[in-house]
Amino acid sequence: MNEKELVEFIAKSLVDDASKVQVNMIESEKSTILELSVDEADIGKIIGKHGRIAKAIRTILSAVSNKSNKRVLLDIID
């Protein structure tokens, strides 16, 4: 399971400037932190109204990370 690729794929499908999508993975023993950064103009598209999209991305991430018993956290960098 490659969480980094998953987040990259989702983020690129939502933004206008896919070339600015970057995911940085920081792994520790118990958790993985994914730092997602996108073009400034695209941040709203990743977060969505009331944070709806960000929440959906996090839900998908936690669904798949349950498989590996490791916590995966998504940080959206602005």
């Binding site: 989702i10 939502l14 999209i53 959906a56 991305i57 998908i60 669904a63």
Partner: peptide, 8 residues
């Protein structure tokens, strides 16, 4: 999860 997938 299905709801989240559908949203995206």
């Amino acid at each position: 999860n299905l709801e989240a997938i559908q949203t995206i």
